[in-house]
Amino acid sequence: MFEAKLQQGGLLKKILESVKDLVVDGLWDCDGAAITLQGMDSSHVALVEMLLRAEAFEHYRCDRNVTLGMNHNHLSKILKCANNDDIVILKAADQNPDSCSLILESKNGEKTSDFVVSLVRIDTDQLGIPETEYSAHVKMSSGEFQRICRDLSQFGDAVQITCSKQDVKFSSSGETGKANITLTHSATVDKEEESVTVDLKEPVDLTFALRFLNLFTKATPISDTVTLSLSQEAPLVVEYKIGDSGHIRYFLAPKIQE
């Protein structure tokens, strides 16, 4: 059987919030080591990959690999019933389960709610993500990245990200004019979560749809920092660490000059 007990149900709520607007139906692959999810948006422009290792759970048992086809809107309805400090227990049968049980327990043990979510059949293309050497890595405050994406959305549909030497510049333009926001590599680091790190091998200059970046920033509550990995010939990677026990990575194909 598959059984996973998460002490802080708030984490599962945050994970779901960060994927559900991008991927409606997702395959949650469970094995002895971790739960993983990979799903593409319907236009095949963006992809989300989530990894949550067994050590994130207070109790984790997966006797045989099992794949749970989750409708994220249905799962979200259940998790809306959970408080952030509720314990969440996921349970499913080993072989081709058609449903998954969720049990919510209040911290003081005085309230227990149980739900059964019907699983869905999902025929999806799984993509092979190659190992890539990126030309630039930018690590920054996740809140600052969210702010920049939101602010620039007022000016245009796309953001041009330019990395050179110790700067990263975010630019957007439209009918109202042009907006540029430049962040410089932090000279001193007092608080890691507020500092900016630009690790550059080669300059990059790429343009991305802001609509998707704004969806990626739904993961902001998961981590204080975010890392952007860029190369001229590869999709952007936006990564939020889930503590020491996993990550959410978003991949976004660039806009290209024809």
Binding site: V45, D125, G128
Partner: peptide, 14 residues
Amino acid sequence: MVNQAYLGEYFGDQ
């Protein structure tokens, strides 16, 4: 002219 690339152009289907 700016077009949107697709992920399949970079990642192979498994």
